[in-house]
Amino acid sequence: MVARYGYGDAFARHVDNNCCRGQGELCNGRVLTTVYYMQDADWDAETDGGCLRLFGSQQPLGEPMDTAATPLADDTPARLDVAPLMDRLVLFLSDFRCPHEVLPVRRREANRFATTIWYWNGDIPIPPWWQPEVHDCQLVEV
């Protein structure tokens, strides 16, 4: 997926795969999320914004998630803000272990460009919304 975030654009806190250990009706097979940043080399996170904010796990240590639809806690503290610097590659788990959001782009002339690639669990069928008839996509077996 290629995305452009302009002035004021953001993406609310979420996870890329709402399932537990490959189970549940919301499971979409995403295991690993990668984000590659492509905007101008002079991006300044303080002025331009647009950081990727990573939160602590929604899964208590040593305990499995009980349901596929566990809501994200609003009070989980942020762990890290990752500046969207040119040629930076970020990798993180796609499930409840790594909730994340994109903070708003703050400078009117700034454009935040990123390519996201998801690595899929081959045992999970590709969901209908990702089929070529519905989505302009290409799936590549790795």
Rank of each mutant, 00 (worst) to 15 (best):
M1W: 15
A3R: 15
G6M: 00
G6L: 00
A10T: 11
A12S: 14
D16Q: 05
N17Y: 09
E25G: 08
C27K: 04
N28F: 00
G29L: 07
Y36C: 08
Y37V: 05
Y37A: 06
Q39E: 14
D40R: 14
D40L: 01
D44I: 03
A45D: 10
T47G: 00
T47F: 05
C51H: 01
L52D: 02
L54V: 15
L54S: 11
Q58L: 02
P64Q: 10
M65A: 13
M65G: 14
A69G: 09
T70V: 12
A73E: 15
A73N: 15
D74C: 05
D75S: 12
D81N: 05
V82E: 03
V82W: 00
M86D: 12
D87R: 14
R88K: 14
L91R: 10
L91W: 08
S94D: 02
D95H: 13
C98I: 00
C98M: 14
P99V: 10
H100D: 08
E101H: 02
V102T: 13
V102H: 03
L103K: 12
P104K: 04
R107A: 11
E109L: 03
A110F: 03
A110T: 07
N111M: 11
F113Q: 09
W118D: 07
I126Q: 08
W130F: 11
D136K: 08
D136S: 11
C137R: 03
C137W: 04
Q138W: 08
V140A: 05
V140D: 02
V140S: 01
